[in-house]
Simulated scan of single mutants.
Amino acid sequence: MARKAPRKTALVTGANSGLGLAAVLQLARTGLHAVGTVRSAEKAEKVHAAAEEAGVDVETRLLDVTDAAGCKDVIGDVRPDILVNNAGSTCYAPVADVMEEEARHHLETSLFAPIRLARLALPHMQDRGWGRIVQVSSVAGKVTYPLMGWYQAGKHAMEAVSDALRLEVAGSGVQVVVVAPGGFRSGISEDMADVAHRYRGSKYATAFRRLDLGFTLVQPFWTDTDEVADVIAFAATAENPKGRYVVGRDAHVTLLVSRIVENFGAAVEARDKVVRRLIGLP
C-alpha cells in the first residue's frame, strides 16, 4: 500500500489578529498543518479561540520577529514547508520626524525579519526539493505617498530583495511570492486616527487630519480581509503561482495611475503639486 504523503506545514507570522489571523485560519482550512506566531500567551489564546470557532486546528509559537535567536529556534522547531511573512508595523510620520532608532526598528520588523526567516527556512525547503515563501507586502511596495516614507521604505526594500531571492532559489524547487494588497479592513484606520491626534497643533496637523478623513471615506471600497487571506492561501498552495499578486481594485487603479504618471516627466511635477495641495502639506 502506498504511503500517504505527510501534511505540509505552513508558518504564518503575526497571526494574532487581522490579516495574519485570517490567513492562518484559511491555510488550516485547506488541510495544512497551520502554525501561527504571536508575541504573548494572551494573543495565543485568541488564536486558539478563533480556530475553535472556525472548526480548524491551529498551533501557535511565541515569537517577536525582531528577535534573531527566537526566529532561529522557531524555524528549527517548525521546519515549515510554507512560510508566510505577515508580521509588520506601520510608521506614519514625516521622514524628518523619525529618529534613526525608530527607523531601524521599523526596518528590522518589515525588512530584516522576513528575510531572516526566509533565509533560515530555505535549507529545510531545499532539502525537500519544495518550498513556498509568501511575502505580504502592500501597494506601498511600489507607490510612494507623503507622510508614510519609512513604511514604504520597508515595503519597497522587502519586495526588491524578495524579487532577487525568487530568481536565486527557483532552481531548488522553492518559490517566492509577493502578495500586495491595497486597503483592507483592519486596524489601519485606528492607527491613522491616533497619528492625526498626535500631530494636532503641528504644521502637519491638516495633512494628517485629511489623511484620517480620507481613510474613513474610502474604507467602504477596501477589500475584505478574508479575500486577501484567500489570495495568500492560493499563493501558498498553487502548483505554479505567479511571482506577485496585487489584491483589490484600489490597488490595481493606484498602480496603473502611478505607471502612467511615471512615464511622463511633467506629470510627476503636476502630481506632486496636486497631492501636496489635496492633503494640505505646508
Rank of each mutant, 00 (worst) to 15 (best):
L62T: 10
Y145I: 06
V257E: 05
T66R: 14
I279M: 06
V74Q: 11
T109D: 05
L83W: 01
R119A: 00
E101S: 13
S202R: 07
T254H: 03
E239V: 14
I232T: 10
L122C: 02
R39E: 04
R39L: 01
E53R: 14
G55D: 03
D212F: 01
R119Q: 02
V74Y: 10
A44T: 08
V136F: 06
A96V: 13
H252R: 11
V143H: 13
D191H: 15
N86E: 01
A22L: 11
A153G: 01
E42P: 08
L25H: 05
Y151D: 11
K72T: 13
L256Y: 10
E42M: 10
V134R: 00
R79M: 12
C91Q: 11
D163W: 04
A140S: 15
K4M: 13
R210C: 04
M148W: 06
T90E: 08
V47K: 08
E45C: 07
N16W: 00
H105P: 01
A270F: 14
G20C: 02
A170S: 09
V58Q: 04
A51W: 03
R132G: 04
E100S: 10
N240V: 06
A69V: 13
D272V: 15
S89I: 15
N263F: 04
A15E: 04
L19A: 15
R259H: 14
Y151Q: 06
L165K: 03
E227Q: 08
G20N: 02
P114M: 01
E159W: 13
E42Y: 08
P282H: 03
R271D: 09
G149I: 00
K46C: 05
K46R: 13
R271H: 09
H252G: 06
K203Y: 09
T206H: 04
V65I: 14
V136Q: 13
M158D: 12
R210I: 00
L213R: 07
P6Y: 06
V268Y: 06
K155C: 05
T216Q: 15
E102D: 14
F264W: 11
D250W: 00
F215I: 05
G171M: 02
G20K: 03
P282L: 07
V176N: 11
V274R: 15
T216K: 14
I115D: 10
V78P: 00
G141W: 02
A121W: 00
K43S: 13
E262N: 15
V253A: 09
R200M: 05
E168Q: 04
Y145L: 12
M1Y: 05
K155Y: 01
R276L: 09
V134F: 00
I260S: 08
V268S: 15
W130E: 01
I260A: 12
R259W: 12
N85C: 02
K72M: 09
L211E: 11
A164T: 12
T237N: 02
A34P: 01
A229V: 00
